[in-house]
Design a binder for these strands. Structure first.
Lengths: 206, 206
DNA sequence: CCTACCGATCGGTAGG
DNA sequence: CCTACCGATCGGTAGG
């Protein structure tokens, strides 16, 4: 009994360790993919970043493609959680909307997230991986839908259709292209401008 | 005289031919860069597309980087011309704005343009090339500035600052990511939605 | 997880 | 513009 307990403990510790190394790889790969792009990042770059030899990442992932998928799903999952926390307890649709915009910008711009990889390496994903990632992405976007519908009902946005939603995401996602931390505008300021742009019928309802 | 005339003619024809081949390479490279990305496109792909051998593109361009720069400047120049033609003769700021939005979407979405390369391969550009491309890009964006200022004065948009302008470009540029020809929405329909989104104070000024 | 390695590919060049 | 080629690098694997 004592022996099997010990064995289980060892196995658990080993499993935790493996999970940690895997998570480290995902984080390092994410950062590199964001900075240099998927194609321009080599397995050797990633291995270096976590202090491994070039062959070792393949102990944790069966291919570079597989790492990309893992990075994206990790980023999406973190985003999904942040988003749910942001709107939790809010009732007013405009407040919810403001919270979603702010949360989305933070996820995209704060540099400890792997999320932006999703935005720019979509093309590098294999067809099979893409299907898996889309499933999580749909869950993320689904949170916006009812909020937009309520805003439409309240007359605060002109349209809540698919095109309008994609234009909105575009304006927000594009920010990764030009935002520089410590630059002209803070994340909060950009969020304010964006909200103002989308809810523009706002102040002049007499 | 006859001989030197002939020589000149031959030289001119040769120069034109070289220019044609160069232009063909730019077009083929542009299409491949849009479809597969800069890194994933090989010189051999490009050479194949125009019926050359793998070493020959280097007769026209000194490096792959150089081709990328040429593709971007070509795309920007075409866009600049299309844009100027679109607003020529228009007086009303709202009309000008509508024309600019439509022109921009056409340039981005109609598949004979190299413009989208600019949007997604910015990172692949070397620092030196980037400076050259930025100069042309600034001229393109400069056309929007006075139009937005007039719209602001007329109370049709909330803000004409840098952030607002970038959010606007973001919404439009992002369309490349999801637009599919023959899909749910036409370019004109998307343009309408975008204009409606940006000029949202419009219809309800009593 | 490391060592040692392989096959393939890629950007680029010399010489004509 | 082609032929023939090179050096470098890269994703991935076998065997421990």
């Amino acid at each position: 009994m004592a022996r099997s307990e010990k064995k289980t403990a060892v196995r658990k510790a080993a499993a935790a360790d493996e999970g940690n190394r895997r998570a480290e790889l995902i984080r390092a790969a994410g950062r590199l993919f964001v900075d240099k792009g998927f194609d321009a990042t080599t397995i050797r770059d990633i291995a270096d970043a976590v202090g491994m030899r070039s062959g070792s990442p393949f102990y944790h992932f069966k291919s570079k493609q597989d790492m990309l998928k893992a990075v994206m799903i990790e980023g999406l999952t973190a985003a999904l959680e942040a988003q749910q926390a942001a709107v939790a307890g809010l009732k007013d649709p405009e407040e919810k909307f403001r919270a979603l915009v702010r949360s989305h910008l933070r996820i995209i711009l704060e540099d400890h997230t792997e999320f932006p990889v999703l935005l720019y390496e979509w093309r590098a994903l294999s067809d099979e991986s893409r299907a898996e990632v889309i499933a999580v992405k749909d869950r993320y976007e689904a949170v916006w839908q009812p909020v937009l519908r309520e805003l439409k009902k309240a007359g605060r946005i002109a349209d809540d259709g698919k095109v309008a939603r994609l234009l909105l995401f575009g304006a927000l996602n594009w920010v990764v292209q030009w935002y520089r931390p410590g630059g002209g505008s803070s994340i909060e300021q950009i969020a304010e401008r964006a909200i103002e742009l989308f809810l523009c019928g706002k102040t002049d309802k007499r």
